[in-house]
Design a protein around this nucleic acid. Sequence first.
DNA 1: TAAATAGTGTGATTTAAATCACAACGAATT
DNA 2: AATTCGTTGTGATTTAAATCACACTATTTA
Lengths: 241, 241
Amino acid sequence: MSACVQQQNFCSYQNTDIFSKQSFQYLESIMYPRVIEKDQYLFLDSDRADQLYYMKKGQIKITKLAEDGKELVLYIFQEGDLIGELGITADSRYNYSAKATAHCEIGIIQQQDLETIIWQHGDVAVEFMRWMSNMHAITRSKFRDLMLYGKKGALCSTLIRLANSYGIMTPTGIVISQTFTNNDLAELIGTTRETVNRMLSTLKKDGVVSLESEGKLKIIKLNKLKEACSCEDCPIEICRI
Amino acid sequence: MSACVQQQNFCSYQNTDIFSKQSFQYLESIMYPRVIEKDQYLFLDSDRADQLYYMKKGQIKITKLAEDGKELVLYIFQEGDLIGELGITADSRYNYSAKATAHCEIGIIQQQDLETIIWQHGDVAVEFMRWMSNMHAITRSKFRDLMLYGKKGALCSTLIRLANSYGIMTPTGIVISQTFTNNDLAELIGTTRETVNRMLSTLKKDGVVSLESEGKLKIIKLNKLKEACSCEDCPIEICRI
DNA sequence: TAAATAGTGTGATTTAAATCACAACGAATT
DNA sequence: AATTCGTTGTGATTTAAATCACACTATTTA
């Protein structure tokens, strides 16, 4: 991740960057357009998983709801990202939900159409597998970050990921160009907004982060965040939100 | 998962069951044999990821080591399982290690050879993607189980997974045919052996599990375990260790 | 057969995090 | 200008889990 945050100005890596122009055109050729309004669901937990979704515009949060009503946010996808999975059985189902947090324009890809393209074009197949592998690596790296270094480590790794996905380099630090409430952050790390608030307070006190205009977070001491989660400097395509 | 535990006698699902005979023969045709002795590593964290591994025999634990020396066991693979990933870049690396816990016979598949097969055979491509998707679903479901219902829920979900991977149905309950020490279980759920010991004690006291000969665990009240982790009855190919 | 080693079981204590409770702020609404 | 609502900040308390400490029991192995 460091590679990105330290060298560029705005660096939201899109997970479809893996595809070549040619392959992407094949994918585009089988997309059906769909609009999802803010706060609507693209799909729900236990819905049949037989489509993929290409995000032309907007933002989608992938969430898992716990029995007691708490929400864990697994990913936040945006423009240029591909969402979905290929079931093993014909009746395979999602085990998470996808909620639009903004007006979204989606390209829907039917699993059957995708399989046809994959059948016909070896390079699409190989690139598609790379995309899947990458998605899995993201999940694994979050798993690690959220399990191994306590809530403090979880928050710090999440801030690094946000910096990679929304960060704008400035002379004084990396500004996260989207505002996240304490509760938003809490849902990303599986904790409470109070715990996030307290942890952020000490990070501010220690000059690691600061609050900019419109409640945007600025990361001042990236290395302190990295220390807190024993950052392994994963490549940018993995270290994202 | 319940489907399996409740209907069969021994039900270790192999993740290569996804492949058709024909596809699997293609995979076999590009395998190189290799033997790994107990306690040796198949690969290490940060090794280049350009191979896949088919397990003909033995057992491999996939682990992630934390800074402080603690180990998190991500998966346990055995006979019939396929291990590995396809990197995005040529220089892609593992971010976990693979340790043999028994004498292993492995079939090594070079990424390049695999890509050739995938290029040539559309059905292998599609099935391979299903395998990848399935592996990802396993990771996500563990993520959920270990994050959302405390250490108690994490242990209970792990016991259910062990029942699916090693369970033998008996008139009085499901016997887990391999012994796991408290510490083994602790590494699977990211806690300490003391915590596991205490949790297992209360599960025994409540008649949920019992200890059989040679330290094997028997699950008596599966539904109690399911309750503790708000089990969603995932399909057997996902609910595994 | 004794010694060493690996694993279990449990008390006592500490630490991390969740929960409860409430005051205060700021933006939007009436 | 007053009210509502979503959000922040922080104290006090409780709970979950980690840590420390040590006795005990199996299982190896010398």
